[in-house]
Amino acid sequence: MVRPPTRVTNRIKDLRTERGVTQAELAARLGVTRQTVIAIEQGRYSPTLELAFQIAHVFGARLDDVFGYSQEEQ
């Protein structure tokens, strides 16, 4: 299995599902492309701190409710 290039994990997909937000809607609210939302969800891109705060803000959650950091060696 291919390891994701980042240790940053996230719950964006779960939060989207809970709140009924599509990837396209989230992307539009963040001002990024839908591909960027997909890449973040799949752990292929670690968002900037600013974008991470924006994502948390959209869900009305704290940063560490959305993002985590895996301590496991890659």
């Binding site: 290039p5 980042t6 591909q35 890449a39 799949q42 292929r44």
Partner: peptide
């Protein structure tokens, strides 16, 4: 980078 991902 688009297909596999952007390394930290």
């Amino acid at each position: 980078f688009r297909r596999v991902g952007v390394p930290g």
